[in-house]
Every structure is written in C-alpha cells, then in structure tokens.
Design a protein around this nucleic acid. Structure first.
Length: 295
DNA sequence: AACTCTGTCAACCGCGCACGT
DNA sequence: TACGTGCGCGGTTGACAGAGT
C-alpha cells in the first residue's frame, strides 16, 4: 500500500525555482498568506509545484527575514554548542539563530562547521561547576511560539548522530574524548548509586530525580540521566578513566554515543562485557539546554 | 584546455506527528 | 478509536562551481 502522494508528481515541476515562480509565490503569499493549506496553495497561486516544495521555497529562501550569507563566529559557537547538546535537531538549533533556517544550519554544519569544530577552530560555550540550568531555557521559551518543545519526550533526547559519533572518532580515545571533554560542560557533580566509589553520598544524592525514584529502572543496569547526573553501571568502576570521562560529560552526555550501533559497541566494550543493551531509557528525562547568553 | 575532484547548497524524499472527522 | 490528511522535520541527493591536476 504506501502513503498517498501529496501531489501528482507527474504534473508538477521539479528542480530549481525560476525568478518568475519565486515572484508568483511571493506575491501570492503576500496577498493571501498560506491559507493554512500548503497543499492547495500552488493551484490557487497558479504554480505547477508541489505544495511542500512551495513551503520549502518560502521558508528557506523567500521569507523576508531570511539571513543570507556567511555565519558569524557567534553563530558558529551557538550551533556547535546546541549540536553537542541536542544532536541534529536542526530546527531547534535554527530557532536560536534569527534569520537562519534549519536547512541552512544543517548544510553549514555538514559542509563546514563540523570540520571547523574538529580542527578546534570553534570555541564552545562552557559552563562552570556552579552554573545552574536555566529555569526558562531558550528552547522551552521558544517553544511557546514555535513547534519545538523540549520536555519529557524521547524525541528530544540529547544525542549525537552516528555521524557525530564517528566525527568524534571514538576509536581514538584520546582525540575523541579530548574533544568531548572540550565540548561538554562539566555538570556532573557526582556519580550515582552504583559506583564503587564510596566518596559519594547516595543518601543525599541530589541527582536522583523524582521521576527516577520509584521507576523500574535499575541503576545498576542503566545510565540514568537527570539534569545533572549520569549514573553508571556497576562495572564501570573497573574503568576509572572511563568513569572520569563520563563524569566530565555531564548531563549533555550524548546518549546516542551509547545507543548508537557503532558507538554502543565501543562503549559497551569500555563499560561492560554485556554492553548493557537496556541502558538507554531516558523517557523520564527533562531536557534543559543551557542558556547560551549567560554572560 | 580538458578532465577530475571536492565543496556547497537548493531541493527532494519519506517518515512521524498532530489534528480533524 | 480509527483513519485520512497536511505539516514539519531530518536525511539525502544532485546540480553546479571552483580548485586541482
């Protein structure tokens, strides 16, 4: 069966937009708006285009508030910081950059920025141990008028894509973790209950969230992540350097680094012979990205 | 000059989600 | 509740331009 196509592909024009088409679309939208229906729009506007194509053209190119041209250093920093925190949530990242589109940001990241980052030419915002998470993070704030909502939603989990994972070159621990050390804000204050390290006072462990308490998630078989914590599996103590690394990851630890196929295997080797396939259960995590402009 | 390689970016594709019926 | 439809998103593709050989 399959999904019904959004338009008759045989009768719509594809490929680059001509200036005339741009003008037609712009003029129509200026006069009528979208009418809440992009699919019907091209017919009304007299364009032989798919509605989705019209929408994309408008959002990515014709909108009057679109910023064309090179990205600033500040924008680089914001993109990198948010990417490290959220992964490839391009629309969310773009929403923090006025005039930039998700497509722009995505292209920029894929073609230039990630190389720049690897080369160490981008300076990420870092937070100190004493820094607290904002009560009204940019993203949740933004979500009031945008679609993106960061909350108890697995789709919003911080992650690094496979791509990012390979970029960080997990095989070459020194280089990869070095980068991650550089990227991630040091928000982990303690390592949770199962660590062999008795220096941690688990009775007063502030890291166990309410949502975690009473959950069925075993702290010996999960990395439990609260806003500020990473609970390591029991066996991790055998790998002190790894533990240290995880501690440095802080909340923003990219769960895809462990969940991801390639990376999971590699981290599995590091952390546990069993690989802890059940590790990743972040459904109770409330993501609170750092406020970027806390100068 | 011709060809190949590489980088860039606009556009497309397919999926998940929200919403209306 | 189930289904259909449209929207929004992230991943991918492909055309083009410029650099390199």
């Amino acid at each position: 069966m399959g999904r019904t196509p959004c338009c008759d592909k045989a009768n719509v024009k594809r490929g680059p937009w001509s200036p005339e088409e741009d003008a037609t679309l712009k003029s129509y939208l200026h006069t009528h708006g979208t009418g809440g229906n992009w699919i019907a729009l091209p017919t009304k506007a007299g364009l032989r285009r798919c509605g989705k194509s019209c929408r994309l053209r408008w959002l990515n190119y014709l909108r009057p508030d679109i910023k064309h041209g090179g990205f600033t250093e500040e924008e680089d920093n914001i993109i990198c910081t948010l990417y490290v925190q959220m992964g490839s949530k391009w629309s969310a990242i773009a929403s923090q950059l006025p005039g930039r589109t998700d497509n722009d940001v995505k292209n920029y990241w894929n073609t230039k920025l990630k190389r720049k980052l690897i080369a160490g030419k981008v300076c990420l915002k870092k937070l100190n141990d004493n820094d607290t998470l904002p009560s009204t993070p940019l993203l949740t704030q933004k979500a009031q008028n945008l679609d993106f909502l960061v909350s108890q939603n697995q789709n919003s989990m911080p992650n690094l894509s496979t791509d990012a994972c390979s970029e960080f070159n997990i095989d070459e621990k020194n280089m990869g973790f070095g980068l991650i050390h550089q990227f991630y804000s040091p928000q982990v204050k303690e390592v949770g209950a199962s660590s062999r390290n008795n220096n941690h006072n688990h009775n007063h462990n502030p890291l166990v969230s309410l949502s975690q308490e009473g959950s069925s998630i075993s702290d010996s078989s999960s990395i439990a992540v609260d806003n500020k914590c990473v609970l390591l599996p029991e066996h991790v103590g055998d790998h002190e350097s790894t533990e240290q690394v995880l501690m440095d990851f802080g909340f923003e630890f990219p769960y895809d680094l462990t969940n991801n196929l390639n990376c999971h295997e590699k981290f599995g080797e590091l952390f546990s012979p069993s690989g802890y396939p059940e590790w990743v259960d972040f459904s109770y995590v409330d993501i609170k990205p750092h406020l970027l402009n806390q100068n």
